[in-house]
C-alpha cells in the first residue's frame, strides 16, 4: 500500500470528519435548547452550498464573501422557520419535532429539485486556494488543507463561545432550565431562535466549504445527515467536545476503510454504531435523559 494513497484517504477522512463535526455540534446545540432532533440539518447544508453557487453565478460574489453570506442567509431562514413552524411543537413529544423537520427536509429538497433539477453543479476552487504543497511524501491540495483548518477552527470557536463567554453561559443555563432562566429576565424564546439559526448556519458553513470538493446538488445533504445521526448515537449530544472528537475520529476511520476495504467504507460508521450499541448502549459520552 503506497503511503501517498493512505495519507490521501486520511486527508479525505479528516475533511469529512470535520464536516460531521460541524453538523453534529449544530445538532447538539439545537437539541439542547429546543428539544428538536433536526433532520433538516442536511437541507441547510445543501442550502449553504447552493447559496454560494448562486451568489457566484448570479451576482459574481466570490467564495470568501459567500463563506460569510451563505451561512448568514441559511441562519436567517432557520430563524424564520423556528419562529413560524418549530415553535408550535415544543410542547409535544420529541418525535413530532423530528417528523416536522423531516417534512422541512423533504419540502426543501423538493423545492430545490423543482428549481434546479437534480444534476450536480461544480463550484470552482477559489484561485487563492488553488494548487497545493508538495510535502515530498504526498501532494497536499491547498483547498483541502484550508477546509480542515477552517472547519476545525470553527468547531473550536463554537466550543469556546459556549464554554467561556457570557452568551455561552446563558445558552447553557437556558438548555438546562429554561423556565427558571426566563424568570431571571432572560429572553429564552429569543435565544431559541438564535440557537436554531446558529445551529443551522453551522451546517450552511459546512455546505459552503464542501461546495468546491463535492458537486452542489439538491440531494447532497440527505445521506450525510443519516451518517451524522449514527455519529450522534455513538457519541451522544451531551458534550460539544465529545461530538467533535467522535466526528473527526469516525471520518478518519472511514478514510482508512477506503484504503483497506473500499466496498465497506460507507458502512464503517454504521458498523461502529452497532458495536457501540452492543458494548456501551448509552453511547461513548452517554448522558441520555
Amino acid at each position: 500500500m503506497p503511503i501517498q494513497a493512505l495519507l490521501g484517504q486520511l486527508l479525505v477522512g479528516l475533511i469529512n470528519g470535520s464536516f460531521y463535526a460541524m453538523m453534529s455540534i449544530g445538532l447538539a446545540i439545537i437539541f439542547g435548547l429546543l428539544g428538536i432532533t433536526n433532520i433538516a440539518q442536511g437541507a441547510f447544508y445543501m442550502m449553504g452550498a447552493f447559496f454560494s453557487w448562486l451568489l457566484l453565478r448570479e451576482a459574481g460574489i466570490g467564495y470568501f464573501y459567500a463563506l460569510v453570506l451563505s451561512p448568514l442567509i441559511v441562519g436567517l431562514i432557520g430563524a424564520a422557520i423556528e419562529r413560524t413552524l418549530l415553535r408550535r411543537v415544543y410542547k409535544l413529544p420529541h418525535e413530532y419535532g423530528l417528523l416536522l423537520t423531516f417534512g422541512i427536509l423533504t419540502f426543501t429538497q423538493g423545492l430545490f429539485i423543482y428549481i434546479f433539477q437534480t444534476a450536480g453543479r461544480p463550484y470552482p476552487v477559489p484561485t487563492e486556494l488553488a494548487g497545493g504543497f508538495n510535502l515530498g511524501f504526498m501532494f497536499l491540495p491547498k483547498y483541502r488543507a484550508w477546509v480542515v483548518i477552517a472547519s476545525l477552527t470553527t468547531c473550536f470557536l463554537v466550543w469556546y463561545a459556549l464554554e467561556k463567554t457570557s452568551l455561552g453561559r446563558t445558552l447553557r443555563a437556558a438548555t438546562e432550565n429554561p423556565t427558571l432562566t426566563r424568570a431571571f429576565g432572560i429572553n429564552v424564546p429569543a435565544l431559541m431562535t438564535l440557537g436554531f439559526g446558529a445551529g443551522v448556519a453551522l451546517a450552511g458553513a459546512a455546505g459552503v466549504l464542501a461546495a468546491p470538493i463535492y458537486t452542489v446538488s439538491p440531494i447532497m445533504g440527505a445521506d450525510l445527515i443519516i451518517v451524522v445521526f449514527a455519529i450522534i448515537v455513538i457519541g451522544g449530544m451531551g458534550s460539544i467536545m465529545g461530538a467533535i472528537v467522535t466526528s473527526v475520529s469516525l471520518g478518519l476511520l472511514e478514510g482508512l476503510a477506503k484504503v483497506y476495504y473500499p466496498q465497506g467504507s460507507n458502512m464503517v460508521v454504521f458498523v461502529i454504531m452497532i458495536a457501540v450499541l452492543l458494548l456501551r448502549p448509552a453511547g461513548l459520552f452517554g448522558r441520555e435523559k
Binding site: L85, R88, V89, L92, Y96, L99, L100, F102, G103, I104, L105, T106, F107, T108, Q109, G110, L111, I113, Y114
Partner: peptide, 20 residues
C-alpha cells in the same frame, strides 16, 4: 413535473402542525 418531495413535505408539515 412537480417533484413529489415538494408535495409530500408540504403535507407532512401541515399534518404535524394542523391535524395530528
Amino acid at each position: 413535473g412537480l417533484p413529489i418531495q415538494l408535495v409530500i413535505g408540504t403535507i407532512f408539515i401541515l399534518c404535524i402542525l394542523l391535524f395530528r
